[in-house]
Simulated scan of single mutants.
Amino acid sequence: MTLSAQSSTPERMPLFRRGLKAFVDIRELTLIALIVTIIIVMANLNPYFLSFSNFRAVAVGMAPTAIIVIGMAILLASGGFDLSVGSVMALSSTVVAMLLLAGVPIPVAVLGGLILGAIIGVLNGLLVTGLGINPLIATLGTMSIARGIALVLTEGFSVSSLPASFAWIGKADIGGFPVIVLVTILLVVFFDLAVRHTRFFRQAYFIGANEKAAMLSGIHVTHVRIILYGLTGVLAALAGVLLASRLMSGTPTAGNGIELQVLAAAVIGGASLRGGEGTILGAFLGVVFVALINNTMTMLAVSIYWQMIVIGGVLICAVALDMLIRSKRS
Rank of each mutant, 00 (worst) to 15 (best):
I39F: 07
A97E: 03
S161N: 10
I226K: 07
A146S: 15
Y205K: 15
M248S: 11
I226E: 04
F200V: 11
L126D: 06
F191Y: 01
V267H: 08
A102C: 05
A90G: 05
F190S: 14
H223R: 13
L15M: 13
S217H: 10
A239T: 05
A97N: 01
L75I: 01
P252F: 00
E259G: 13
A194F: 02
E155V: 08
L300S: 14
A265E: 11
V224D: 11
A237M: 04
E277S: 15
G132N: 06
A265Y: 05
V104T: 12
T154Y: 05
F190W: 04
R27Y: 07
K21V: 14
D192Y: 02
I145T: 08
I120V: 14
L136S: 10
L216K: 13
F49C: 10
L186E: 03
T184I: 07
L91F: 00
V221G: 13
I68W: 02
I169M: 04
F191S: 14
E211Q: 12
E259T: 03
S272T: 08
G112S: 09
M89D: 04
L116Y: 03
I115E: 05
V85R: 06
A213M: 14
A254F: 01
N46L: 04
W168V: 13
A43K: 06
A43V: 00
M72C: 11
I180Y: 08
R329P: 12
A73L: 01
A265K: 02
N44T: 09
I32S: 15
S160M: 03
G19S: 13
V36E: 03
M1W: 06
V36T: 09
M143I: 08
V241S: 04
L34V: 07
R225W: 00
T154C: 08
A167S: 12
S78N: 09
A22F: 07
I35V: 12
V302W: 03
G286H: 02
L216D: 09
V290M: 13
R17N: 13
P135T: 04
F55R: 09
A214P: 15
A109D: 00
A194Q: 05
A204I: 06
S245K: 08
F177P: 04
F191M: 11
T65N: 14
V310Y: 01
S93I: 06
V310T: 07
I120G: 09
G270C: 06
V221S: 08
S160R: 02
I311Y: 03
S51F: 09
V188D: 06
L186M: 13
L281H: 12
V110R: 01
I293M: 05
Y229G: 10
S272Q: 02
H223T: 07
F206N: 10
F200K: 10
L247R: 06
K212M: 11
L101V: 09
F289N: 08
Y229N: 12
A90K: 06
G255Y: 00
V267N: 05
G19L: 11
H197P: 09
T296M: 07
T251F: 01
A63N: 10
G117K: 06
D173V: 04
L182I: 15
A204S: 14
A236E: 03
I207S: 00
L131D: 03
M1I: 09
L100C: 12
Q6M: 12
I137Q: 08
E28N: 13
V314W: 00
S4A: 11
V224N: 12
R329Q: 06
P135F: 00
T9L: 15
G250I: 02
V88Q: 05
A77V: 07
A194H: 02
S8R: 13
L238S: 15
